[in-house]
Design a binder for these strands. Structure first.
Lengths: 178, 178
DNA sequence: GTGCTATGAATGAAGG
DNA sequence: CCTTCATTCATAGCAC
């Protein structure tokens, strides 16, 4: 049951426990990211996950984490544009900037990666992509009352010094058991 | 090689700035959560925080955020579970995480379970934990008050449908102080 | 075998 | 409450 060899992506060590995205999955995700999609909503995550499942095992949370991480690292790397890790001395080999598929590039040469023609799923996906990109996000989050109630509670915490204060004034009540 | 974070209470990594709950703290909080506590009141937070301070450094806001995050994530995990239809790759076992504490019980797969980070202090806590768990979580003076509040709180939870049957194991800490 | 890098996963903290 | 950011842990993969 080699479910992962269909793409030559090598889910070599993808035993269980950690999602190992295939090259196709990474490509699509990266493409979406470059298209401007940074924080997909739950609905979008579902759609993306469903489509990517055609390329291999994947869960919604994987998509969620991928975007979270990618966005965070991208920003972090941009901020790190100077200084660097230091060991760059000698080798002119610097890491990557922007958002090249780090994983794909690192995966050797990908012997079978050179699909001149995209898979059917992939083509289908691109179409979907358009829709997703075009899709507008509707907050329509009107918790109204719930928010109000929460506000008051939160306010209590603030007044009590739980938040913002940094340190809670009423430290310990000598209630130590034992 | 910072083997010597002999601070005891906090585990590695918790340099500063961010609260790093100990295994015992997480245990208590998790138990409280499982017992039905969802959104503790201000005084509840204070009490819990005070008691948990015996295990290490902690602030009220930490407790506050912990419950908020835990609840939200619990919900999201359930929501996100519909990612992959389950390729049933060989075993077809889904790694559902629900509430996997990363701190103590993190040793899920750990081939060698090589817990070099486990200090002697931690072992001591585990023993203490027993006693503490047996004790009630609230001060004796608050018997009636805490009980009343908790009861009403639990009732709200039930109405909200959070105490869904089959979801939370039968654990009732409220009986500890009743 | 050891070390580093990239990255998936988790969670504390905060904003709205 | 819901969403998002920031920091950290743990692991896969490759280089030395």
């Amino acid at each position: 049951m080699d479910e992962g060899d269909r793409f030559g992506t090598a889910r070599v060590g993808a035993k269980c426990g950690r999602w190992n995205p295939t090259a196709e999955q990474v490509k699509v995700l990266t493409d979406l990211f470059r298209s401007g999609l940074r924080t997909p909503s739950t609905d979008q995550i579902q759609t993306i996950s469903s489509h990517l499942s055609s390329f291999g095992k994947i869960e919604s949370k994987n998509v969620f984490y991928w975007f979270q991480n990618h966005k965070a690292r991208e920003r972090h790397h941009k901020k790190r544009r100077r200084g660097g890790p230091g060991p760059g001395a000698g080798g002119g080999e610097d890491h990557l900037l922007l958002l090249p598929d780090k994983r794909g590039a690192r995966t050797r040469s990908l012997p079978s990666n050179d699909d001149s023609r995209k898979s059917e799923q992939e083509v289908m996906w691109e179409e979907r992509q358009r829709e997703i990109e075009t899709l507008e996000l509707f907050p329509l989050k009107s918790y109204d009352l719930a928010a109000e109630k929460w506000r008051s509670m939160r306010n209590e915490c603030k007044e009590a010094g739980f938040l913002e204060a940094g340190m809670d004034p009423p430290l310990d009540l000598s209630l130590r058991f034992l």
